[in-house]
Design a protein around this nucleic acid. Structure first.
Length: 866
RNA sequence: GGGCGUUUAGCUCAGUUGGCUAGAGCACCGCCCUUACAAGGCGGGGGUCGAGGGUUCGAGUCCCCCAACGCCCACCA
């Protein structure tokens, strides 16, 4: 016996266990199937499931469950990312509670502690994914720090080095003074800052006046080694080649000419600090200027002996300014809003620092990655993201991959203490191949987490080993992710895959939007507008959360979400539940075969719903093939509710035991519900599995059942006329406030013989007692209902007030007249008749004929009201 | 400074290559506990498709321009 309402809590955990333990998530359930593979965007191992994951995973699960049912060897490969900075931060926070830093503990012990943390808390997100219903193959779960994946990372590093694509150099990099590590360009977020532009006078050494420069960072003047002006700038033509005295530091520095200086910004003269600004560094290189480091990795001033020594950079900014003011070197200070880089992880203002780091040379890698998308080997859905991808690729700078962290893949480079040789190799270096010394020291740094993520599509399948999985599932088919990590991740996977596997990593890249609140704001914990998917699953059930996300996720668009959507999905689940409950308990629909089973000789209602099922299934499949999940499930939702439940199920209620059509209807009902469950299963796996269980004989699971065929049946016109007459009767009742219980005498005048079933359905669906007859004499008027092949009349005498019917008719007449004149105008336009396609013109003529007939009849009715 | 997106019913959004009277969910109004579901059924009201111009027999849809909002990118210090 089924509950009167659907109780998700009762069923979700139970079915997930059954699926997992039966191996249903493994591609081996379809051993002969064509491979289809999605690798999951690995969540941070420190992560907890948020709405973004829920959306991302719901989409992937819909895709993979459908492919599985379609017979593919469908693999959805799960795993997590070791997330260098984030994970290290978590464990460092734990240490801080004990008053310790990682340096107190030491490198080895610290890493052990991170592993211990991972063992304890690292599967949080995996368990949350189970609650969501993700059908990932857990037997293939991977971690970016696994032995195998670490080998892949090492091989890639060494190969890049051997091919000159990995190098170590002194460059200006983005430094986070709080995380104490270098960052790549894209780990820096630019935010508007109400800054100030300080105009400082630098006097010429020869006493011929001064040159004024404008800067947002006066504190860096301590490290100035030149002033630069544009060579075209006539204002400074005489100044080039002279020297100025650097205030506060009493250092003579040259005035140089460089194209990089803008003529119309500030004063046209710029102070050059090669050690603390990327542009200045380049200018410095062109003019042979010595970089002077004045800010350290703590963002403190390092100028020995000076009054600023040890000051924080922002403190120093004020101190430098106030000293400059004292010596009257400041011309003015202007407000100057500009954007300042922040660490994407901790939001500290990043410090550009000159530093020795490892870089990937990206130029040779981008060409193939661009070509692969240009020639369609990989495509973006929606396509417009390709432009962003191209633009990004074409403007890449070398990727700084070394991080001054402990948690990550250690850089496989050793430095000889005796001869300065650098050794990069697969094997740990013991002796220097150059001088034979054994005094080798390994690089202290680890690699950017995204470096290992970039290998994810092939490293997870076993690369560089030539595993069976790699041979079978690589290249993978589809990648599903948000636009926010196209640059961090997608672009890098493309580059690395083409370089190391000579293949694209996936053929389709499906980009979805972000989950936002109803005000369009990004959901985040800090602003307090975040919905927690786990709380929602607890309250509404996982299926409701999934269906709401899928239905609102138009491809590539952000989705505003509130609980109303989820509640609507929950109500749908309940409707589905009750429809099935009714079919099973009252219609005796059970034991429906999992495959085939369409009736050989369906009744008219059966043929109608089967024709609709066929059309909907075909369109649904087309939409899903194009990754239009929201449209597909919107279509299916309306079909199930408005057609199957509201019409067909009601028609089936007239089924009686002695009815000849009973068997056909029972079978049709079973088959239609079975296919509806299957089509819904990828989106709402739990409720459909539970209902499948009550529908069938318990010998199969819906998760591994076969995808519905497209039944081909023609809808008989009689069902259309039936529905129209029934709707008209209902409308008539409603407009005249006639109670449901009161009989409405309907006289049906068919153009041909009408079968009993038709009259019975009208009676049942409209709660009326229709009789066959001629058009009645208008005693006190009657209303007329019409549909193809049939007309029906409701005499008004004694039933309704004639005065209430008159405005109804008048309104109907004026509506028809308006449309008729519109259509006539069209047809009187010679251009339309001549140029529009024939079928369009013919359809318009037919409409006019229909409307004219209808208009005449309605006018007669009005006249007959008297 | 570039690039992209959005603007359609009270709200949130669909609307595919131009073609029946522009749709859905929620909200709203009326009637109804009819052998599953009141978390439901039946019926209804509500939109000059952001503004302007153009192409076309025909434009929510294609082109141009404008406006508002949002996002991404960018070394003008």
């Amino acid at each position: 016996v089924m509950h009167a309402t659907y109780q998700p809590k009762d069923v979700e955990a139970r079915w997930y266990k059954v699926w997992e333990e039966s191996g249903s998530f493994r591609p081996e359930v379809n051993p002969d199937g064509e491979p289809y593979c999605i690798v999951i965007p690995p969540p941070n191992v420190t992560g907890v499931l948020h709405m973004g994951h829920a959306l991302d995973h719901a989409i992937q699960d819909v895709i993979i469950r459908r492919k599985r049912m379609q017979g593919y060897a469908a693999l959805w490969l799960p795993g997590t990312d070791h997330a260098g900075i984030a994970t290290q931060n978590v464990v460092e926070r734990e240490l801080r509670i004990e008053g310790l830093t990682r340096h107190d503990v030491g490198r080895e012990a610290f890493i052990e502690q991170v592993w211990a943390w991972k063992a304890k808390s690292g599967n949080t997100i995996s368990n949350q994914m189970r609650k969501l219903g993700d059908s990932t193959d857990w037997t293939r779960e991977r971690f970016t720090f696994d032995e195998g994946l670490s080998q892949a990372v090492r091989k890639v590093f060494v190969d890049l080095y051997d091919n000159g694509l990995m190098y170590r150099a002194n460059r200006i990099i983005n430094w986070c003074p709080r995380c104490h590590t270098a960052l790549s360009e894209i780990e820096v977020e630019h935010e508007d800052d109400p800054g100030e532009l300080t105009y400082i006078r630098y006097p010429f050494v020869d006493g011929s006046g001064f040159v004024t420069v404008a800067t947002t960072r006066p504190e860096t003047m301590l490290g100035d080694t030149a002033i630069a002006v544009n060579p075209e700038d006539e204002r400074y033509a005489d100044a080039v080649g002279k020297t100025v005295m650097l205030p506060l530091m009493d250092r003579e520095i040259p005035v140089v000419a460089d194209d990089a200086v803008e003529l119309d910004f500030g004063t046209g003269a710029v102070k050059v600090t090669p050690a603390h600004d990327p542009l200045d560094f380049e200018i410095g290189q062109r003019h042979d200027l010595e970089p002077i480091i004045v800010i350290d990795t703590e963002a403190k001033i390092t100028v020995d002996g000076g009054e600023f020594f040890g000051m924080d950079r922002f403190e120093a900014r004020e101190a430098v300014r106030s000293r400059l003011r004292e010596i009257d070197a400041i011309e003015k200070i202007e407000e100057h809003p500009h954007s300042v880089g922040h660490c994407s992880r901790c939001h500290t203002v990043v410090e550009p620092l000159l530093s020795l780091q490892w870089f990937v040379k990206v130029d040779p890698l981008v060409g193939p990655a661009i070509d692969a998308v240009k020639d369609g080997r990989t495509r973006f859905v929606p396509k417009r993201w390709e432009n962003n991808y191209f633009y990004w690729m074409e403007n890449l700078r070398d990727w700084c991959v070394s991080r001054q962290l402990w948690w990550g893949h250690r850089i496989p480079a050793w430095y000889c203490q005796d001869c300065d040789e650098t050794i990069v190799s697969m094997e740990d270096a013991v002796t220097c191949p150059s001088c034979g010394s054994s005094k080798l020291v390994q690089d202290e740094d680890v690699l950017d987490t995204w470096f290992s993520s970039a290998l994810w599509p092939f490293s997870t399948l076993g690369w560089p080993e030539e595993t069976d999985d790699l041979a079978k599932y690589y290249p993978t088919t589809t990648l599903v992710t948000g636009f926010d990590i196209i640059f961090f991740w997608v672009a890098r996977m493309m580059k690395m895959a083409l370089q190391f596997t000579d293949s694209v990593p996936f053929t389709d890249i499906v980009i979805h939007g972000m989950v936002r609140d109803m005000a369009g704001k990004k959901m985040s914990k800090s602003t307090g507008n975040a919905l927690d998917p786990l709380e929602l699953i607890d309250e509404y059930g996982a299926d409701s959360v999934r269906l709401a996300l899928i239905q609102s996720a138009a491809p590539g668009h952000d989705i505003p979400l509130n609980t109303d959507w989820i509640d609507a999905s929950r109500r749908f689940g309940n409707k589905l539940w009750n429809a099935m409950r009714f079919a099973v308990e009252f219609m005796d629909v059970s034991g429906v075969p999992a495959d085939g089973g369409y009736p050989d000789d369906p009744g008219p209602e059966d043929a109608w719903i089967l024709s609709r099922l066929g059309a909907v299934t075909a369109e649904f499949d087309d939409l899903l093939d194009e990754y239009r999940l929201s449209d597909a499930y919107g279509l299916l939702y309306n079909f199930a509710w408005s057609e199957v439940f509201d019409w067909y199920l009601e028609m089936a209620k007239s089924l009686t035991e002695d009815d000849q059509r009973a068997a056909s209807m029972r079978q049709t009902l079973g088959v239609v519900l079975r296919d509806v469950l299957k089509l819904f299963h990828p989106a709402t796996p739990f409720v459909t599995e539970e209902l499948w269980d009550s529908l069938g004989d318990g010998s199969t699971l819906i998760i591994t059942s076969t995808w519905p065929q497209v039944p081909e049946f023609a809808a008989p016109e009689s069902v259309d006329s039936l529905q129209r007459i029934v709707s008209d009767i209902r409308r008539f009742r409603s407009q005249h406030h006639i109670a449901n219980k009161a009989d409405v005498p309907v006289i049906v005048a068919p153009s041909d013989d009408l079968p009993d079933w038709w009259l019975n359905q009208v009676a049942s669906l409209s709660n009326s007692q229709p009789t066959i007859g001629e058009r009645p004499e208008p005693v006190a008027g009657h209303t007329r209902l019409s549909a193809p092949g049939v007309e029906a009349y409701i005499p008004l005498a004694g039933l309704v007030d004639v005065d209430a019917e008159r405005p109804r008719l008048e309104k109907a007449i004026s509506e028809i007249e308006a449309n008729l004149s519109k259509s006539n105008a069209k047809l009187q336009n010679a251009n339309f008749v001549d140029r529009a396609p024939e079928d369009i013109v013919a359809a318009e003529r037919a409409r006019v004929d229909d409307m004219e007939r209808e208009l005449a009849k309605q006018r007669t009715l009005l006249a007959e009201l008297g």
